[in-house]
């Protein structure tokens, strides 16, 4: 084979393969938004939308009862108090409810904290709509400030019949140090 030909062929092949490499590097990063989309669709990990749902009127299904549990956690040693004022609520799908959570900054410094919601079972997440939640944005607390924060939600009546209990969990992360 002619050497020039061979060099040309090699150069072309290498270029194409390098393009594949670059594309696959990009693909690794593309998995991040792809994963979020997948989570939305499948309820993987009980990841929930971080934005408020529009307040739509659903038909209220008074014949059906779903138990909603509220649980709270603090990540690492977030120096806070955090509790839900309602531990458990029996709801009718389609009806709007408001429950209160109480959080308090236990330090003498201002604190920025983010609450991360997670719903279990994950597949119920897309039927659990929050129209108001302290988890949509970071919360700033003045030193030693404590306050009550409401969450307004509705369970979409389309929730498949097998779900009788839904758990809404919040974890507060202290984000002050990363500011």
């Amino acid at each position: 084979m002619n050497t020039d030909d061979l060099q040309q062929k090699n150069a072309r092949l290498v270029r194409n393969l390098v393009l594949v490499v670059v594309a696959m590097f990009g693909f690794g990063f593309a998995l991040v938004p792809l994963y979020d989309v997948l989570c939305d669709i499948t309820g993987l990990n009980g990841k929930v939308a971080a934005t408020a749902a529009k307040e739509v009127v659903y038909p209220i299904d008074n014949s059906r009862e779903v138990t909603v549990e509220f649980i709270t956690s603090l990540n690492e040693s977030a120096p806070m108090l955090f509790r839900s004022e309602t531990k458990k609520l029996i709801v009718h799908p389609g009806e709007y409810y408001t429950v209160n959570f109480y959080a308090e900054n236990l330090t003498d410094k201002p604190m920025v904290a983010q609450a991360i919601p997670s719903i279990s079972p994950g597949l119920a997440a897309e039927y659990f709509k929050k129209t108001e939640c302290f988890c949509f944005t970071e919360q700033t607390f003045k030193p030693r400030e404590g306050r009550t924060m409401p969450v307004r939600f509705v369970v979409n009546p389309d929730l498949p019949k097998q779900y009788k209990t839904i758990t809404l969990a919040y974890t507060f992360f202290d984000n002050t140090k990363t500011q």
Binding site: K47, N75, I116, S120
Partner: peptide
């Protein structure tokens, strides 16, 4: 057990 998420 995963920080920030809940499993059952």
């Amino acid at each position: 057990a995963i920080p920030g998420f809940i499993n059952e």
